[in-house]
Design a protein around this nucleic acid. Structure first.
Lengths: 125, 125
DNA sequence: CAAAACGCTTACGATTGGAAAGTAGGCACC
DNA sequence: GGTGCCTACTTTCCAATCGTAAGCGTTTTG
């Protein structure tokens, strides 16, 4: 906030900071994106759609997102097991909010790369 | 992207994912926010404004942000040392993009809390 | 002479993350 | 009837990361 809007209450500030700390996680953002993009998905599909995630982190992050009310988890008592994950409207809202970050990242990728090259060139050690 | 816009190229997708992975960091977002809010600041001021950060992580994150071209670092050769950090326009852009996330967090804090309570209540273990 | 100010840097223990193997349990195949 | 597969985890082990606390260098202040 702050840079975008009035804030005032330091307690709210602290709570929001805390919330950001838990939601601004690499895997959370990536999973949020694939679910926003592809709708309802099973465990293995999400794992395939999020490059580089381990099963452990996938399980852990999905649980956390479920706890925060960002996704729903539906278990079908069949064999082999089938579990479907989908965004709640809360999750959709966060996905929409992150949208700006994605667009920024896409638009500014070359500038970041250039900045990094320049930094590495001027920093020998 | 994806959920907000056309994407197509999987190479760009991978690069953006990678970039998100590095930028979607708790401390990066928090530092970005205080710099967007308060303008140019010195090392210790940022440390005070970001609750819970250690000097080590502050140094580390600031360096990373400098490398990515998000902030500038100006050193004044005086005693005691004086170092000023400020957002670049690239950093301002990212701050603006994150703005939506902050507003979402502020607006949905009670819903997240409620979801978490409900989850904890229904999950005994 | 001692302490404070500032921006780091280092050492070390605690937490987290990844890779790979294991689990459960019904079902297809030989 | 035994072997192995399918899926969604769970567990185990090891490496990377993180937080805490302390130290460093230089000059002013008491």
């Amino acid at each position: 906030m702050s840079s975008c809007e009035t804030v005032a209450d330091p307690r709210v500030q602290a709570l929001v900071n805390d919330l950001i700390g838990r939601v601004a996680d690499k895997w959370t953002m990536l999973i949020l994106d694939v679910l926003a993009e592809q709708g309802t998905l099973r465990f293995t599909r999400i794992g395939e759609a999020v490059p580089g995630i381990s099963q452990k982190m996938l399980t852990q992050t999905l649980r956390q997102m479920e706890r925060d009310g960002l996704i729903t988890r539906r278990v079908f008592p069949v064999v082999p097991p089938r579990v479907e994950y989908a965004l709640t409207d809360l999750g959709h809202g966060l996905g929409a909010a992150f949208c700006g970050v994605w667009l920024w990242a896409e638009a500014n990728l070359p500038r970041i790369d250039a900045a990094r090259c320049a930094f590495d060139a001027r920093t020998p050690g």
